[in-house]
Write a protein that binds this DNA or RNA. Structure first.
Length: 893
DNA sequence: GCGGCGACTTGGCTACATTACC
DNA sequence: GGTAATGTAGCCAAGTCGCCGC
C-alpha cells in the first residue's frame, strides 16, 4: 500500500502528532540560539571577490540518461516558449552554432586555485559568432556540449593560459591586492586571490573565430601551470544533453511529479525526436576519456558492476544515515517524507491536505529586577522598560555598540516606552553594566549546570515544542522549518542599515495568519484569551503561517516546511534542472550578448553588458532598494563609482553586495565591454546608476526571451555547479579518501570564491596559528635531538640527557629513525593544516553547498570514487538532498 | 509597462554540540 | 577528564523574482 495514500486516509482525524512514533520519528532537537549576531563589516577581513572560473565542458553521454530520477528533468532541451517563434533566429539552431568550437578542454584542478580566471575567454568565440537575430529564444545548440561554453569561463581561461594575447577578448581578472609576504594571502579579497593565482593574459583586441581551436583566453599564470586537459572533450553531438525520456527513468519517486518547469508554457518534454534518438545511441564520445578508459580495460559488464559496487558503498552509508527515516511507519500514522512529491508551478496548487499545529511563542518576559544606573543612580523600570533595556545591555560586546545609528534608533524606541517625563532623559548617561553583569552571571550559571540538568531542560523544551515541529502535507509527515515565532529584540540589520537598533516588538497571535488545509483542525491559539489574526486555506502557497515584520510592516515573516521536506526538495531539484538547461543555451546566449555589446540601441547594449557581468562575475541581479534599507547594490544597481575603468581594458569593481559584503575585483574585459562601460559612465556623476536604462525586470524579461524561465540568478547556480562538476572530474586522482576529499574541498572553495561567499575570520584564528607554529618549532627541536641521538646510537653511544637533565631511554638506531620519520610526518601534517586553515579563513564553503551546488554532482562523484557521502554532506544536507541520493554514478551536471 | 506586494531563496553569524587532542 | 578546535543547527536578515492591478 502506498504510504501516502495510507496516510491520507488518516488525515482529517489527524489531530496532532502526539506520535507514539518510534524513535525514528522523533524530532531532532531544535536549539534556539540566543541571539546575538554580530554583523561584521570589517572590510579588511571580508575580502571580496569572486571570480568565475571554470566551467566545464564535456558531458558524458551518461549524463543524458542520468538515471536517478530525474524526473523533472524533462526540462532540458526545452523548446522555445510559444511566444517566441523558433524560427525567429538561427541562434538557436544547430546551424547557428555549428561554428562551434571544439576546443580542448582545459586542464584541471591541480592548479585550480591558482588559476582562477575569468571569463574572458568566452567572449572570444562569441565575437565572431554570427548572430542574426536579436531578440530570440536561444535554442539549445546541438554542438554545445563540446563547446567551451559549457565550461566555466575561468576554465576556459586556464586552457589558454599559455597563449597570451591570442584570445579575443578574454577577461582575465587581475589581482588588485598585493600578496602579503607570508604564505598566507588572507589579506587579499577572495576574488583577487583567485585572480592573482591565475594571472591573465593580455586582452588583445584581436578576435578570433570559433574555428581557431585556440584557447579562448590567453592567460599567463603567475604561478600556475597552464596545462591543457588531456582528457579532451570529445567532439560533441547535439544529442548530448539528456533527453526527457532518459530522465524519465528516473526513480519512481519522481515519476509522479509535475515539475514546475514542465508545467510552464514551455513544452519541456517535447524534445526533438532526433535528439532523443541520438541520445539513445550514446557513443563514447560523450564520455570523458577517463571513463572510457575504464570501460575499455574493464570486463564487458564492468561499468555496471563497478557501479554496483560503488553504489553499494555509498548507499550503505546513506542507508545508515537514513536508517531512522526508513523504519518509520511502523508506529507512525504518517509517512515521513524522503521522496519528492508532485508539485505545481507558481500560483498552482502546491498541496491537497495540510495539517499542522501552528507556531510556538517565546515565553513571556521574566523580570530580573536588576537596575541600570542613570547618572550613577539606580533607576526603577517597569517590566516593559526593563525588557528593552536588557536587550540593549546584553549587546555591550558587539560592534553595534560602536554604531551611533544603532544607539540612536534604540534610544528613540526605548524613550517612547519610558515616557516623556521619565527620569532618564538621555542614553549617554545610562549605565547598563549591572544588567550586563547579571546576564553574564546567568550565562555562567547555565554553563555550570550538570549534564543531567542540561538534559532535563532540553527534554522539557522538546516536550513543549514537539507538536509544532511537524506538519502533515498530503498525508506525509514533514518537518516544519521555523515553527518558533521570533522573540522580541533589537533589530540587527547588517552593514549600515538605517533601522538597526530599532525595537522588534513581541509578536502576538493576533499578528499571525495561519494557512492550513480545509477541514483540518485549526491550531489552538497557545496564548489563552487571544486568537489568530486570520486562518486561510490557500493551497497555492507553501507557508504555514506568516506575520508582518515589525521593523518593516510591508514585509512578512513566513513559517515554511524544513529544507528536508519534499516541497523544498522538489523546488530545489527544479532549480538545478533549470541551471542544467542553461548549459544547452549558454553558448548562444553568450553569442547574443557579445553581439549586442556594440548595439546602437543603448538599452540593448546595457542589457548585454549587464548579462556579461552576471555571467562572468556571478554578480547578483541587483534589485532596487528603498531608502530604509542598507545601501547595497547588485549588477543592475551598480553606480558609476562602483566601477573604475582602467585603460586599456580593466574594470575595477568595488561595492557592497548582499549583506553588505564587500565585493572588490579587478577584471580584464573585452574591449567592447570596456568601451561600453565608459560610455555608460560618461556624463554621469559617481552616484548615478551605471545601467540607467535597466532594471532587473527588464533584464530578466530579456533573459526569458533567450531561455524559458531564465533569470539572472540561474547563472550563479549554473556557474557554481558546472565548476564543481568540472573540477571534480578533472581533478580527482586515484588515492585515498582523504585525498579525494581535499580535491572536493578545493573545488568547493573555488565555487565559494566565484560566488563571493565570505566569512569573518574567527576570533581565535590568530591564536590557533600561533599555537600551531609553536608546536612545529617544538617538533623541530625534538627532531634535532633525535638526529643527534641517532648519530650517537649508530656509534654505540647513549643518548644525551634531556632538557631537564634526565637520562633518556636507550633506543636502537632503527627505533630512532622511525621516531624521526614520525616527527617529520607530524610536522608536515601541521603545516598542511595551517595552510588549509589560512586558505579558508575568509571563505565560507557551506553556502555554496547548500544553495548552489547540484547535490547530484556530489553524490555521483562519491559513488564513482567510493567516497562515503557522509564525508561531504552532513546530516542536514543528507536530509535536504534526499532526492538526489539515488542518482546514477555517471551523472554529470 | 510599471510598481508594489507577496512568496520564496540565499546568506552570514552565533550558540551549542561534538570531536580531537593532550 | 579537561580544554580547544571543529561542526552544526538555527536564527533571521536580505536578497530574487513572479504576478497582479492599475
Amino acid at each position: 500500500m502506498n504510504f501516502c495514500a495510507m496516510a491520507v486516509e488518516t488525515f482529517g482525524k489527524a489531530p496532532m502528532f502526539d506520535d507514539d512514533d518510534d524513535e525514528d520519528n522523533m524530532p531532532i532537537v531544535f536549539k534556539r540560539s540566543s541571539a546575538s549576531r554580530q554583523n561584521q563589516l570589517d572590510s579588511e577581513i571580508k575580502h571580496s571577490q569572486s571570480q568565475r572560473l571554470n566551467k566545464l565542458s564535456g558531458r558524458p553521454a551518461s549524463d543524458v540518461c542520468s538515471s536517478n530520477g530525474q524526473s523533472s528533468n524533462n526540462q532540458k532541451r526545452m523548446t522555445p516558449l510559444p511566444k517566441t517563434s523558433p524560427m525567429r533566429s538561427e541562434i538557436g539552431s544547430p546551424k547557428a552554432s555549428k561554428s562551434s568550437i571544439q576546443e580542448p578542454l582545459v586542464k584541471p584542478l591541480g592548479t585550480t586555485l591558482k588559476v582562477s580566471d575569468s571569463m574572458g575567454s568566452r567572449p572570444k568565440h562569441l565575437v565572431n559568432a554570427s548572430v542574426k537575430e536579436e531578440n530570440v529564444t536561444v535554442n539549445p545548440t546541438d554542438d554545445n556540449s563540446d563547446s567551451e561554453d559549457d565550461k566555466p569561463l575561468s576554465i576556459r581561461l586556464k586552457g589558454n593560459s599559455n597563449q597570451p594575447n591570442k584570445g579575443p577578448g578574454p577577461t582575465v581578472p587581475k589581482n588588485k591586492v598585493k600578496k602579503p609576504s607570508g604564505d598566507s594571502d588572507d589579506e587579499i579579497p577572495l576574488s583577487s586571490k583567485f585572480q592573482m593565482k591565475s594571472a591573465s593574459g593580455a586582452l588583445g583586441g584581436k578576435q578570433h573565430g570559433f574555428d581557431e581551436k585556440k584557447p579562448l583566453v590567453p592567460k599567463v599564470h603567475q604561478n600556475g601551470s597552464t596545462s591543457r586537459d588531456k582528457l579532451q572533450k570529445p567532439a560533441v553531438l547535439s544529442s548530448k544533453r539528456p533527453l526527457p525520456s532518459a530522465d524519465s527513468h528516473s526513480s519512481s519517486q519522481f515519476s509522479m511529479k509535475k515539475p514546475k518547469l514542465s508545467d510552464s508554457s514551455t513544452p519541456l518534454s517535447s524534445k526533438p525526436v532526433s535528439l532523443k534518438a541520438k541520445q539513445e545511441v550514446d557513443d563514447d564520445d560523450d564520455i570523458p576519456i577517463s571513463q572510457r578508459m575504464k570501460k575499455i580495460s574493464a570486463p564487458v559488464n564492468k561499468s555496471s558492476s563497478s557501479k554496483q559496487t560503488v553504489s553499494k558503498v555509498v548507499s550503505s552509508s546513506i542507508k545508515k544515515t537514513f536508517k531512522k527515516s526508513k523504519k518509520p511507519v511502523k508506529k507512525s500514522k504518517y509517512v515521513k517524507s524522503t521522496k519528492l512529491l508532485p508539485s505545481a508551478g507558481d500560483g498552482q496548487k502546491k498541496w491537497t491536505t495540510l495539517v499542522h499545529n501552528g507556531v510556538i511563542f517565546p515565553p513571556p518576559y521574566q523580570t530580573h529586577g536588576v537596575k541600570i544606573l542613570y547618572k550613577g543612580k539606580p533607576v526603577d523600570l517597569t517590566p516593559e522598560q526593563e525588557e528593552v533595556a536588557t536587550m540593549f545591555a546584553v549587546m555591550k560586546d558587539t560592534d553595534y555598540m560602536l554604531k551611533p545609528k544603532f544607539k540612536e534608533n534604540f534610544w528613540n524606541d526605548w524613550r517612547k516606552l519610558l515616557g516623556k517625563n521619565h527620569v532618564i532623559q538621555n542614553l549617554d548617561d545610562c549605565d547598563f553594566t549591572p544588567i550586563y553583569d547579571w546576564y553574564q552571571t546567568e550565562k555562567e550559571k547555565k554553563k555550570q549546570m550538570t549534564t543531567e540538568e542540561k538534559k532535563a531542560l532540553k527534554e522539557e523544551k522538546l516536550k513543549q515544542e514537539e507538536k509544532y515541529m511537524w506538519a502533515i502535507l498530503d498525508g506525509v509527515k514533514e518537518k516544519v522549518g521555523n515553527f518558533r515565532v521570533e522573540p522580541p529584540g533589537l533589530f540587527r540589520g547588517r552593514g549600515e542599515h538605517p533601522k538597526m537598533g530599532k525595537l522588534k516588538r513581541r509578536i502576538r497571535p493576533s499578528d499571525i495568519t495561519i494557512n492550513i488545509g480545509k477541514g483540518a483542525p485549526i491550531p489552538e491559539c497557545p496564548i489563552p484569551g487571544e486568537s489568530w489574526k486570520e486562518v486561510r486555506h490557500d493551497n497555492t502557497v507553501t507557508w504555514l503561517a506568516f506575520w508582518n515584520d515589525p521593523i518593516n510592516q510591508k514585509e512578512f515573516k513566513y513559517v515554511f516546511l524544513a529544507a528536508s521536506s519534499s516541497l523544498k526538495g522538489q523546488s530545489d531539484k527544479e532549480k538545478y534542472e533549470k541551471a542544467r538547461m542553461l548549459k544547452d543555451y549558454i553558448k548562444n546566449i553568450r553569442n547574443a550578448y557579445t553581439k549586442d555589446f556594440t548595439s546602437k540601441d543603448p538599452t540593448r547594449r546595457q542589457i548585454a553588458v549587464a548579462t556579461y557581468l552576471i555571467d562572468k562575475l556571478a554578480l547578483r541581479a541587483g534589485n532596487e532598494k528603498d531608502d530604509d534599507e542598507a545601501d547595497t547594490v547588485g549588477c543592475c544597481t551598480l553606480k558609476v563609482e562602483n566601477v573604475k575603468a582602467v585603460p586599456p581594458n580593466l574594470l575595477e569593481f568595488n561595492f557592497l553586495g548582499k549583506d553588505s559584503i564587500k565585493y572588490e575585483n579587478t577584471v580584464e574585459v573585452e574591449l567592447p565591454v570596456f568601451k561600453a562601460i565608459t560610455q555608460f559612465q560618461s556624463g554621469k556623476s559617481g552616484t548615478d546608476d551605471l545601467f540607467d536604462k535597466l532594471d532587473t525586470n527588464k533584464l530578466n524579461a530579456h533573459l526569458k526571451d533567450l531561455m524559458p524561465g531564465l533569470t539572472a540568478k540561474v547563472f550563479r547556480t549554473y556557474n557554481a555547479s558546472i565548476t564543481l562538476d568540472d573540477m571534480l572530474n578533472r581533478g580527482t586522482k586515484d588515492g585515498d579518501v582523504a585525498e579525494k576529499i581535499v580535491t572536493y574541498q578545493h573545488a568547493n572553495k573555488e565555487v565559494a570564491i566565484i560566488c563571493n561567499h565570505q566569512r569573518t575570520v574567527s576570533k581565535s584564528h590568530g591564536a590557533q596559528m600561533t599555537r600551531l607554529n609553536e608546536k612545529i618549532s617544538e617538533l623541530r627541536d625534538i627532531l634535532k635531538e633525535l638526529k643527534i641521538d641517532l648519530d650517537r646510537a649508530k656509534k654505540g653511544k647513549p643518548p644525551l640527557k634531556d632538557a631537564d637533565g634526565k637520562r633518556k631511554r636507550n633506543l636502537t638506531p632503527e627505533a630512532l629513525e622511525k621516531k624521526i620519520s614520525q616527527t617529520n610526518a607530524k610536522i608536515e601534517k601541521i603545516e598542511r593544516d595551517m595552510k588549509t586553515k589560512e586558505d579558508l579563513k575568509t571563505v565560507a564553503l557551506g553556502t555554496s553547498k547548500i544553495n548552489y551546488l547540484d547535490p547530484r554532482i556530489t553524490v555521483a562523484w562519491c559513488k564513482r570514487h567510493e567516497v562515503p557521502i557522509e564525508k561531504i554532506f552532513n546530516k542536514s544536507l543528507l536530509a535536504k538532498f534526499a532526492w538526489a541520493m539515488d542518482v546514477d554514478p555517471d551523472f554529470r551536471f
